[in-house]
């Protein structure tokens, strides 16, 4: 097994391109190292991207923020601008692991690990975030929900990596929230996750909404019916009920050691409703 820590994006891509065997990109390593130790993967090459300076920064861009792939949870949580604009995304990232894990784990690693239960992904999807995918052929920007194709599977091509994630600008009366259900209080995997982003007009009517669910299907899903339930309403009790219904009907979970189908379907609605209430409150505070 070879370990490389290039200092430029081009060097990283070159390394990826020239390796015929199994490759793993290493960001925080909080998934990769666990997989290595358990013998789940036996890579021929590991490319550590944390030494690439451009990937370690958060930059303002068109009123939104571009977050480098090597930015860890603790850094993101310490960035006042991102916290103000996308509190739901930040709270989702901060749910990952513990203080120790936060010092390593990245949002992009969470995305590229392609777990249907990844905490930051529903929040990013709700936020309408885009991922900049870079490879030998250059770069392209794609919605984050297009990265994972199934558990552990991504749409990234050979020698491609995610360079950064872009969180867009948004209007005044808007906010977002993420909630997950775990049977404990921390250090657990989401049994259901729900991310919601809303925008209200000056009269308190919802003009725009995105709702995403995690852990209730093979990948994080954007639920358009759930958003429709909110748009055009003041997000009153009837709208919340319709939202919960839509979220529950969209859920296509499995029975497993972490929860039953019935439980996940019901709780998807419960969390969507609770997250919407928080997002509405936040949109008023701003």
């Amino acid at each position: 097994m070879r370990f490389e820590a290039p200092t430029s994006l081009n060097a990283a891509i070159e390394l990826l391109e020239n390796e015929a065997g199994v490759v793993r990109i290493l960001a925080g390593g909080t998934d990769v190292l666990v997989q290595l130790r358990s013998g789940q993967v036996e890579p021929d090459l590991i490319v550590d991207i944390k030494r690439i300076e451009a990937m370690q920064t958060i930059t303002e861009e068109d009123g939104g923020f571009r977050i480098g792939a090597a930015v860890c949870g603790a850094e993101l949580g310490g960035h006042a601008g991102v916290c103000k604009l996308w509190p739901g995304v930040v709270e989702a990232v901060e749910l990952i692991g513990s203080t120790q894990v936060q010092g390593r784990a990245t949002m992009v690693g969470n995305l590229c690990n392609a777990s249907p239960a990844a905490d930051s992904v529903p929040a990013m999807v709700a936020a309408g975030a885009t991922a900049r995918v870079t490879g030998p052929e250059g770069s392209r920007d794609i919605p984050v929900e297009k990265i994972a194709t199934g558990p552990g599977q991504t749409s990234l091509g050979r020698a491609e990596l995610v360079e950064s994630v872009y969180l867009p600008a948004r209007g005044v009366h808007s906010s977002d929230a993420y909630l997950r259900f775990i049977p404990r209080t921390e250090m657990d995997i989401a049994v259901v996750g729900a991310g919601i982003s809303i925008e209200m007009d000056g009269n308190g009517i919802c003009t725009h909404a995105r709702v995403a669910l995690g852990a209730v299907g093979p990948r994080v899903m954007l639920v358009e019916d759930a958003a429709t339930a909110l748009i055009g309403t003041s997000i009153d009790e009837a709208a919340l009920e319709a939202l919960a219904q839509a979220a529950s009907s969209a859920a296509t979970p499995i029975d497993d050691k972490r929860g039953t189908v019935d439980f996940r379907i019901k709780v998807a609605g419960v969390l969507a409703r609770r997250a919407a209430i928080i997002a509405v409150q936040r949109s008023r505070v701003d």
Binding site: R184, E186, M187, I189
Partner: peptide, 16 residues
Amino acid sequence: LQNAGFLDYRMPVASD
């Protein structure tokens, strides 16, 4: 056994 690890064999953590 489906849950041979502390992730899915859920012992209480301090904050519980």
